[in-house]
């Protein structure tokens, strides 16, 4: 499939380009917009690999909610755009070392786990695996994820839910400040008023 791989490499190149622009562009709002572009291109690659469910969730959560909150915050903060060129080489030593370490890890993982397992013929042609693959091939994308998530990995699913809950409670506790001086409108109080208890009737008596 030459078209497929050509498209794949083109979009991967775009991802790298826009990820690079995220950190080099001067205006912070532009860098958030490039971040959104990175998300969208990643979505496109996932769609190209015929994964349907995950990219749409990606769009709804990351692009539709999180990146918009980023944009909101960045737009509201009055950021001065730095005119002088920053010295990127200053950070090169530490970032280079970290990057190299991650690169070695990546190469190690790819060589150890992914390719070796796939290439060994015994695994692919053993009947157990064949049945499993046929079983999951018949299901659609959504049901496949459901089958795994709610049976084998339900502990991980629940744990991630709790983690997100803690992540939500933390900021609320930190930022909650009830202002007793400001006047609020409570609709239920207004609706609960009665004619007999109103002030002007008591004055009349």
């Amino acid at each position: 499939m030459p078209y497929f791989s050509l498209l794949f490499f083109f979009i991967s190149f775009l991802i790298i380009l826009s990820a690079f622009l995220v950190i080099t562009v001067k205006n912070p709002v532009h860098s958030v917009l490039f971040l959104v572009l990175v998300f969208l291109e990643a979505t496109f690659i996932l769609l190209l690999l015929e994964i349907e469910f995950l990219p749409l969730i990606f769009i709804i959560i990351y692009v539709g909610a999180i990146a918009i909150l980023f944009l909101f915050v960045v737009m509201m903060i009055d950021v001065k755009i730095i005119k002088s060129p920053t010295n990127y080489l200053k950070y090169f030593s530490i970032s280079g070392i970290t990057g190299l370490i991650f690169l070695f890890f990546l190469i190690y993982i790819i060589q150890e786990s992914i390719f070796l397992n796939q290439l060994s013929n015994e695994l692919i042609f053993s009947t157990n695996y064949k049945n499993c693959i046929i079983n999951f091939d018949n299901l659609n994308n959504l049901k496949c994820i459901g089958q795994f998530l709610y049976t084998d990995y339900f502990v991980h699913f629940l744990m991630s839910g709790f983690l997100l809950l803690i992540g939500m409670i933390g900021p609320i506790v930190l930022t909650l400040f009830i202002n007793t001086y400001s006047k609020n409108q409570f609709i239920y109080k207004q609706l609960a008023r009665k004619y007999n208890l109103a002030i002007f009737t008591s004055i009349k008596k």
Binding site: V29, L33, V36, E52, F53, L56, I57, I59, I60, V63, G64, A65, I68, L71, F72, M75, N140, N141, L142
Partner: peptide, 25 residues
């Protein structure tokens, strides 16, 4: 006739905010 049409529509409508917020800024 895609299998996850509702999610697709929901994703598109959540992207719709970008046109508005970028135009305002």
């Amino acid at each position: 006739d895609i299998q996850i049409g509702v999610l697709y529509l929901f994703g598109i409508s959540s992207l719709g905010v970008y046109g508005i917020i970028t135009s305002g800024w």
